[in-house]
């Protein structure tokens, strides 16, 4: 059978989710044409989907050897390095990609994410902005950029990027939770609580939203106690238990001050 037919059939199986059949076709293709970059890349992705990451790595490496400008293979090599926990090698691959292709949104995204993980926020912002400008349709690019701005107390930019995240993906609960903190830290407690409740509506088990709400209610309860308003405090501790029934602070203080 001809290589092109094998590749077409492999691609078709892949789209239909028949991974093993796709693998067989692409394997046959590279036996006939060992230099076929697309077939090797497809094998790489297919192996990765089957969680055969070492085999996937070898396929992408083959492609990079055939043509060092195949940025698709370089990107996956970078991702697989991160999967191994190899910061420097992953970083190097993404750097290489933007040398080859200065408009590669994916490489900028990973570089920005890596700088975020190192809490080197100015660098993270620099790269994530490039990722955003090269491709503004990725919700996670906006989210990570929002986080970086948030870390620098650039709250307007953080809010804007959280909102852009949600415009692309309304169920991005981490962005909603982040907006909650922006509000909370500038004293808008009710607005913050409303955000975290939004998250719980989407996912009642969202631990961040649960613990954020519990903390907010506990804070409000303590402030009420300081103002000598025990009844109000009790109502807040009850709200704490409403979201986090085992919250030790609320359980204890309700026992102590409650009816």
């Amino acid at each position: 059978m001809d290589v092109d037919d094998l590749i077409f059939q492999g691609a078709d199986y892949h789209y239909k989710g028949e991974l093993d059949k796709a693998i067989a076709k692409f394997q046959a293709a590279v036996r006939i044409e060992p230099q076929n970059e697309y077939a090797h890349n497809q094998l790489g992705i297919l192996y990765a989907k089957k969680e055969r990451f070492d085999a996937a790595f070898r396929e992408f490496q083959k492609v990079a050897q055939i043509d060092g400008h195949n940025t698709y293979a370089l990107l996956w090599l970078g991702i697989l390095y991160l999967k191994q926990g190899n910061l420097n090698q992953g970083f190097e691959k993404f750097q290489r990609i933007i040398e080859i292709d200065p408009s590669n949104a994916d490489a900028y995204y990973f570089l920005g994410a890596i700088y975020n993980f190192r809490h080197n926020t100015t660098k993270a912002i620099k790269y994530l902005k490039k990722a955003r400008d090269a491709d503004s349709d990725e919700s996670d690019t906006h989210y990570r950029l929002a986080q970086a701005f948030h870390n620098l107390d650039m709250t307007t930019n953080a809010l804007l990027e959280y909102q852009r995240t949600l415009a692309l993906k309304p169920s991005h609960t981490k962005a909603i939770n982040g907006i909650g903190w922006l509000y909370y830290n500038r004293g808008e407690r009710d607005a913050a609580i409303a955000e975290w409740k939004k998250t719980l509506k989407m996912n009642p088990r969202d631990r961040d939203a649960i613990f954020n709400l519990a903390k907010a209610y506990n804070d409000l309860a303590w402030e009420a106690m300081k103002r000598n308003k025990p009844k109000e405090a009790i109502s807040y501790w009850k709200k704490t238990l409403g979201v986090d029934p085992k919250n030790k602070a609320a359980v204890h203080y309700l026992k102590k001050y409650g009816a």
Binding site: H119, N120, T122, K123, N151, M154, T155, T156, L159, L160
Partner: peptide
């Protein structure tokens, strides 16, 4: 309007920060 405000904030903030290279972990907070 939010984008304009964000741009002003960015110009004010980022001009104060010196860009830092390297992958060392940073503690500021």
């Amino acid at each position: 309007p939010l984008e304009k405000k964000a741009r002003a904030e960015e110009e004010a903030m980022l001009s104060q920060l010196t860009p830092e290279g390297g992958l060392a972990y940073r503690v500021k907070r």
